[in-house]
Amino acid sequence: MFRRKFLKIAGLGAAAVALPSLGAYAISLNEATAGVILHQFRFLNLDRKGIDQFVQDYYKQEGSSKSALAQVKMRGYYMLNINSDQSQLVRTITTLYLLSTDFFQNRMDEGKLVRYQGIYDPYKTPCANPFSALYYPPAPAV
């Protein structure tokens, strides 16, 4: 009697652990990374095709990020809705995405469509300072 009960409980416990981990592999690495970006910047109007292109360019540039551990981490971050405050990897990817868009050239206007322009490389475009005071919205009159 106890053995059957133990086997049932152990089987249910193993299934409870295995099913979510199988669900993590149901989504591709690119979809998970795009989902993390969309979750982080859900208040912005983002170009979905631009996000997909950024993710392809990012993983083309970062060849080592396709390791098994990095894939599991990114899929886990996507499934758990981890934001940039909780993960340095998410912070790095989302910062690079924002620097690779026209968000700062549009004076950080959250109402405009944010378009991907190309992967940001400070050595190729050293004069494009997105944090320049020229890009900030004008201060309200007092």
Rank of each mutant, 00 (worst) to 15 (best):
Y59C: 05
P126M: 01
M108R: 13
A34K: 02
F41H: 04
Q88L: 14
A16P: 05
G111P: 09
D102M: 10
V17E: 05
M108L: 15
Y135I: 08
V114M: 03
L38M: 01
V55E: 03
F103K: 04
D47M: 03
L69R: 06
L89F: 14
R48L: 09
I119F: 02
S67W: 07
I9E: 07
V55S: 01
F103M: 13
A32S: 15
K5W: 05
N129G: 13
T125L: 09
C127H: 08
Y120G: 01
A133C: 09
V36P: 06
M1D: 03
Q117N: 15
K112R: 14
A18C: 15
P20K: 09
D52N: 09
I93Y: 00
Y120I: 00
L44N: 03
S65E: 15
R75H: 13
F43N: 04
A68S: 06
A139G: 05
F41W: 08
A32H: 04
I9L: 15
M79A: 11
T33N: 08
Q61W: 08
F43W: 01
N30V: 06
Q86L: 07
R4A: 15
P20N: 02
N129F: 13
R42C: 12
V17R: 11
H39W: 13
L29H: 14
D109C: 03
R75W: 13
E62V: 10
R75A: 09
A26P: 12
V36M: 03
V90M: 02
I51Q: 00
S84H: 08
A128V: 05
L19T: 12
D47E: 04
G118L: 11
G11P: 11
S28Q: 02
R4S: 09
M74S: 13
A18Q: 12
G111L: 12
F2S: 07
Y135F: 15
G63L: 04
M108Q: 15
D57A: 00
A15M: 15
V36F: 07
R48W: 00
V72C: 01
N106C: 05
S67F: 06
F131M: 06
Q61T: 10
S21F: 15
S65D: 15
I37R: 00
T33L: 06
A14E: 11
A24V: 03
K73N: 07
K73H: 03
A24L: 10
G50K: 11
D57H: 00
R3G: 01
R115V: 07
